[in-house]
């Protein structure tokens, strides 16, 4: 069953066609990686899901409901979101950052949920709860950002190049712990990355985007076999052996 359904999505920025008739769906429990070079439209597509971007035409439905009919603030609180630079609130402790969405939702146990989420993201709450973002490493900050995204236990998680700024080793660890977290939380995820290798490590399905269009979509395990044309080129560039 499709938890997220995108049909004929079109978005223009001036003369640039960022999304050109994109149709995609993400099944419950799946992790779809949107792969492509910068300017291919993958982030625009991601942001259409929680209405950070409003489409010029086309439809987006989440949990069977058109997003246009849902108050954007309520919609966003029900969907986890992680961006590349983490975007932690600098004058809040890690715990307060992690507990943001439960607190916005008025949960009385927001703080407790934040603690649990920090643990789930691989950070010991006893050590990290009272620290401020500037006291953390890049990898730790990204883990807090993930904890914040999952603290309210959303069924959908949107990730926009979440590990793009990390060094190779930290990045590997982050990818692995994200994959584990996703499994255990049974969350449906859309994961934007320009790195096909990363896509193959974290995703169950991969959609390759170019110039606002999806040029290929398949199961993660089949893409190496099926790729042709641009997707094959991209595989080549990413250094994935065929």
């Amino acid at each position: 069953m499709a938890l997220i359904r995108i049909e004929d999505a079109v978005k223009r920025y001036g003369d640039v066609l960022a999304l050109n008739n994109v149709t995609l769906s993400v099944d419950k429990g799946a992790c779809l990686a949107l792969v492509g070079e910068s300017g291919s439209g993958k982030t625009t597509l991601l942001r259409a899901i929680n209405r950070l971007t409003e489409l010029d035409s086309g439809r987006v439905a989440v949990r069977g409901q058109p997003v246009g009919a849902i108050d954007p603030v309520q919609l966003r609180r029900s969907i986890g979101y992680v961006q590349q630079d983490g975007g932690l609130i600098p004058h809040w402790t890690c715990l307060k950052n992690a507990a943001l969405v439960p607190a916005l939702l008025g949960n009385h146990d927001a703080s407790e949920r934040g603690r649990v989420a920090l643990g789930a993201a691989g950070l010991d709450p006893a050590t990290f709860a009272s620290r401020y973002p500037r006291e953390l490493s890049g990898g730790q900050r990204q883990r807090v950002a993930i904890a914040r995204a999952v603290a309210a236990e959303p069924d959908i998680l949107l990730m926009d190049e979440p590990f793009g700024a990390l060094d190779a080793i930290t990045r590997n660890e982050a990818q692995e712990s994200f994959a584990a977290l996703r499994e255990s939380a049974r969350v449906t995820a859309v994961f934007v990355t320009h790195d096909l290798r990363e896509a193959l490590r974290v995703a169950t399905r991969v959609a390759v985007m170019r110039a606002g269009q999806v040029v290929m979509e398949s199961a993660a395990g089949e893409i190496v076999r099926d790729a042709t044309g641009y997707a094959a080129e991209l595989l080549e560039k990413s250094g994935v052996a065929r």
Partner: peptide, 15 residues
């Protein structure tokens, strides 16, 4: 004031 924190806050449902 921390534009990245503002954009993340908005994406997570802050008004």
């Amino acid at each position: 004031a921390a534009p990245d924190a503002v954009s993340a806050g908005r994406a997570l449902g802050m008004t």
